[in-house]
Amino acid sequence: MSNTPLKLIECPRDAMQGIEEFIPTKLKAEYINKLLKVGFDTIDFGSFVSPKAIPQMKDTREVLKLLDLSSTRSKLLAIIANLRGAEEAVLHPEITYLGFPFSISETFQQRNTNSSIAEAFDTVQQIQSLCIKNSKELVIYISMGFGNPYGDEWDADILSKWVKEMSRIGVKIIALSDTIGVSNPQNIDYLFKNVTNDHPKIELGVHLHSTPTTRLEKIDAAWQAGCRRFDSALKGYGGCPMAKDELTGNISTESILSYLNDQQINTGLNMDYWTEAMEFSNHIFH
């Protein structure tokens, strides 16, 4: 089995971004502050994107000012979708990671960032240079990583090609993202093992979307294939507002914790603070 350390990435940004009613800034910050106490490796806390595209995230700067990072081991990740967003994100010393959604579906890349795949890769190269200059780490989310609903060409070779391109420009962390929930144990196992074998220096993770009935088999397939980096969201809220209407939600953090507990894996999380965050989440998700 893998000797890679376990990294759990909690994604309140992903959970909140699709909620239409605006969540007050102080409430967002209070919730994220509770998550910061739990001990996750990373908190995906906000995004520097157009407020027209994702209105819920228009207060990311204000939320950041209210976060208490004095007693947490968690690092902060912010999502960006273009160079302008990256230029703003790198100004904040509190942020360690910038996350960029890079689709290997031409249709979805256009829908998500109004650019072609080739244009998006140019943007990635510029953002990577910016990250290096500002001591930030770029995390690439390969969206539509397990297939797409648009009929765009897709196979494991296309995925591997783009992982190779990212590695070539110095990207070290890539999350295979199941934007619309089409992953299954077979393709998770196949893709993860093949990409890991082809690109051993890449820290490869999964950002899976799932229905409640399939989430444990997906978690198990990723774990058995050697994955040690998991994105999830408390209670499985969220999904991708740009993908399609009937959202397939994020994998719930409690499903991952339950699975790891069954495997007798020590997560190192403070479960008292976790329970507190779970209870507080009712103020956000109702």
Rank of each mutant, 00 (worst) to 15 (best):
I19T: 08
H92I: 05
T179C: 08
L216P: 10
K218R: 13
L216I: 11
G236C: 09
A225S: 12
S71I: 14
D231I: 02
A78Y: 01
W162F: 11
D178I: 04
T196Y: 12
T253I: 06
K37A: 13
D68W: 07
F108R: 06
C227W: 03
N194L: 13
K34R: 14
G181S: 08
C227S: 07
V139D: 01
T214A: 14
N184L: 03
N282R: 12
N250R: 12
R228Y: 05
E217F: 06
C240Q: 05
Y259E: 07
A81V: 11
F45W: 05
A222S: 11
F121K: 00
T107A: 10
L83A: 06
K161C: 13
D231E: 04
F285P: 07
N266P: 05
R229I: 14
D14P: 07
A78F: 01
L269D: 08
Y31V: 03
Q224K: 15
G239S: 10
M166E: 04
A89L: 01
A277S: 08
L159D: 07
N112Y: 04
P101T: 01
F40W: 06
L204M: 05
A120H: 09
I180F: 09
L191H: 12
G181V: 02
S210W: 04
T267N: 02
A78R: 00
S74F: 10
E94C: 06
F285L: 02
K75R: 07
Q264A: 14
E153T: 15
A243L: 06
Q17H: 03
T96F: 06
I132G: 02
F22Y: 14
V38I: 11
T96G: 05
T214R: 14
G170Q: 01
K65M: 08
I95S: 02
E119D: 14
G239C: 09
G151W: 10
G239Y: 12
R229K: 15
F285A: 07
T253C: 04
Y150Q: 06
H199Q: 06
S2H: 13
P241C: 08
Q56Y: 03
E94D: 06
N282E: 15
S183W: 02
I127S: 00
K7I: 10
M278A: 15
D220L: 08
T213W: 13
K172S: 07
I219D: 02
P93Q: 09
P101W: 01
T248M: 12
A89K: 00
V63M: 04
S143T: 02
I19L: 14
T248N: 14
H209P: 13
A53R: 15
E20K: 14
W223L: 09
K52M: 11
K28S: 04
L64V: 03
R61A: 15
C131Y: 01
K58Q: 13
L138V: 00
T179N: 03
K133A: 06
F102K: 01
Y97N: 00
T42K: 07
L83H: 07
K7P: 10
N250S: 09
A175C: 12
N261A: 13
I219M: 04
F108G: 02
S167L: 06
A53Y: 12
